[in-house]
């Protein structure tokens, strides 16, 4: 996407500048052909599966499109769907739910994956084994993990793993998912997501840790720094800046897309319903209100775009390491 055909042809021209015009043109054509051959399938997929649906969704959002994706012109409602969604307490609550979720999951995932990476960086034996062990959960689907979490670890009966452990200490059974007071369901949701995604970000951090030149540490020791907290705060963390910024962004985007574990663990409950789950039930399921669903999706997309841009600006995403 970053290289336009013209730009590609320009660089090509530089290399073939001494050739005659005729073959230069055919060379340019060949480059353009290669460009489209490589990017074409991707662009076609992007158009068919992203651009067209988004445009169609924008179109639907101005209609009373219940049970149809081709509403009639008399069903035009202007911004009616947008005002209804913005006044819809359930939709606003879902945005709050998401914010709470992000507030938990972003720092926790960051800390856990960095912690794991630092520990594994120190391990002197069976490194490949430990890395694989922590990375493996990433290969597990959220749906399967939700089944395990919901049915064997955190079910509300006496033989659930968590309740069986609590029972050893004489604590009464806890209904983990379906009693929001106290909100234990966050423990279930957050632990599941941590289990799945920490390994992946850990690998990113390990790669970044190995890029830090050893002489920085050696120089620090010569100057009297102690290994541990001092070198971590003043050498390791600053050196990881570019990776950290990217990881925070990736975690946040992944959190925006949270759907599988919520819908499989809890379903459509007012207290734990992120925006995607709410929109799923509005636009699909039995409601089939594709107009309101589309309006909500576009509002959400706008919020995500704004937050991501702000975050990129604040954290300096894309800046070079060490700046």
């Amino acid at each position: 996407m970053a290289v336009s055909p013209a730009a590609a042809a320009d660089t090509d021209r530089a290399g073939t500048g001494d050739q005659r015009p005729r073959s230069r043109r055919s060379g340019r054509r060949r480059t353009a052909l290669a460009f489209w051959a490589f990017t074409g399938p991707f662009l076609a997929g992007l158009a068919v599966f992203t651009v067209v649906p988004v445009a169609w969704s924008a179109y639907l959002s101005f209609f009373d499109a219940t049970n149809t994706v081709t509403p009639l012109s008399e069903d035009f409602v202007g911004f009616g769907n947008y005002t209804r969604m913005l006044q819809d307490q359930a939709f606003l609550d879902s945005l709050v739910t998401f914010s709470v979720f992000a507030a938990f999951i972003v720092p926790l995932t960051f800390a856990c994956s960095l912690g794991l990476a630092l520990l594994l960086d120190r391990v002197r034996f069976a490194r490949a084994f430990f890395r694989s062990v922590f990375f493996l959960p990433f290969a597990c689907s959220y749906v399967v993990a939700s089944l395990v979490w919901k049915m064997s670890i955190f079910n509300g009966v006496r033989y659930g793993l968590a309740n069986a452990v609590l029972d050893l200490f004489g604590v009464d059974d806890v209904a983990w998912l379906f009693n929001p007071d106290p909100p234990w369901y966050w423990l279930v949701i957050v632990s599941l997501r941590l289990w799945i995604q920490c390994g992946f970000y850990m690998i990113l951090f390990i790669a970044a840790l190995q890029q830090i030149p050893a002489h920085l540490y050696e120089a620090a020791y010569v100057d009297g720094a102690k290994p541990g907290r001092q070198t971590f705060w003043h050498i390791t963390l600053p050196q990881l800046r570019a990776t950290s910024v990217a990881v925070v962004m990736l975690i946040l985007i992944a959190a925006y897309q949270a759907f599988d574990e919520f819908v499989n663990l809890i379903g459509n409950q007012a207290y734990a319903r992120p925006p995607l789950v709410y929109l799923y039930y509005t636009a699909l399921g039995t409601q089939q209100d594709l107009g309101r669903g589309s309006a909500g999706a576009l509002i959400l997309a706008l919020i995500i775009a704004i937050v991501t841009l702000l975050q990129g600006r604040l954290l300096g995403f894309g800046n070079k390491e060490g700046r």
């Binding site: 007071d181 459509n268 207290y271």
Partner: peptide, 14 residues
């Protein structure tokens, strides 16, 4: 959904 949410909010959330 409106009454479901109402019941959840009264009964479970207080």
């Amino acid at each position: 959904l409106a009454v479901d949410d109402m019941m959840t909010n009264i009964v479970l959330e207080g």
